[in-house]
Simulated scan of single mutants.
Amino acid sequence: MDASVPRLEIRNLTRRYDGRVVVDDLSFKVMAGQVTCLLGPSGCGKSTTLRLIAGVEMQDAGEIWVDGRLICDTVFRVPPERRQIGLMFQDFALFPHLSVADNVAFGLSGDRAAQSARVSELLERVGLGTYGTKYPHELSGGEQQRVALARALAPSPSIMLMDEPFSGLDNRLRDGIRDETLDILREQGTAVLLVTHEPEEAMRMADEIALMRGGRIVQMGAPYNIYNAPVDRECVAFFSDVNVIRGRVQGALTQTAFGQFFTPGVDDGREVEIVIRPQHVKIDFDRNGRGPNPTMAEGTPVRGTVVRARFMGNESLVEFRMDHDGSVMRATVPNVFLPSPGNALWLMMRRDKCFVFPVEEAEG
Rank of each mutant, 00 (worst) to 15 (best):
L173C: 11
G215E: 02
T196L: 05
M162D: 04
G176H: 14
S156Y: 09
M160R: 10
G215W: 06
E200T: 14
A152H: 02
G176S: 15
D170N: 10
L149D: 03
L185Y: 01
L182R: 06
R178W: 00
A202M: 08
V231F: 01
F239N: 11
L153D: 09
V195M: 03
C235L: 09
F238E: 01
D232P: 01
R178A: 04
A206L: 06
P157R: 14
C235F: 03
R213E: 15
I184M: 13
R151D: 05
P165V: 11
Q219G: 06
T181K: 09
E200P: 01
D163I: 13
S240N: 12
I177F: 00
L173D: 13
A206K: 11
A229N: 13
V147L: 08
T181W: 06
D179L: 13
I226M: 08
A150F: 04
M203F: 09
T181I: 11
F238D: 02
L211A: 02
R233V: 14
R172C: 02
E198V: 14
P155M: 06
G214S: 07
R233I: 11
L161V: 12
Q188K: 15
R172E: 14
A150S: 09
F238L: 06
G215Q: 06
L161Y: 00
F238T: 06
L173I: 13
A229L: 08
E180P: 09
M162L: 14
L193S: 07
T190A: 11
L182T: 04
A206F: 11
L211H: 02
R216G: 00
G215A: 03
V218D: 02
T181F: 01
Q219M: 07
S240E: 07
Y224T: 12
M205S: 15
N171I: 12
L169S: 04
L149G: 11
R186A: 08
E164I: 09
E208Y: 03
T196Q: 05
F239H: 08
D170R: 01
R204P: 04
G215I: 00
D183M: 10
L185E: 00
D175C: 02
P230L: 09
I177W: 04
M203C: 12
V218T: 12
P157K: 14
D241G: 14
E164H: 03
L193D: 04
M220G: 07
A202D: 10
A222P: 04
R216P: 00
A237T: 11
R151M: 13
L161C: 01
V236D: 10
I217H: 05
G176Q: 15
M203D: 02
M160K: 05
I184H: 03
G176I: 13
C235Q: 13
P223R: 09
F238H: 02
E234M: 04
I217Y: 08
I177Y: 00
A237V: 05
E234C: 01
L161R: 03
I159A: 06
P157L: 07
R213T: 02
L185H: 00
F166K: 14
A191H: 05
V195E: 02
L193V: 14
L194C: 04
E180Q: 15
N228Y: 12
P199D: 12
H197M: 08
A229T: 15
P155G: 09
E234S: 11
M160T: 07
L161G: 10
F238W: 04
R216S: 12
R216K: 15
A222F: 01
A152N: 11
R174E: 13
A222E: 13
I159E: 06
A154F: 06
E180S: 14
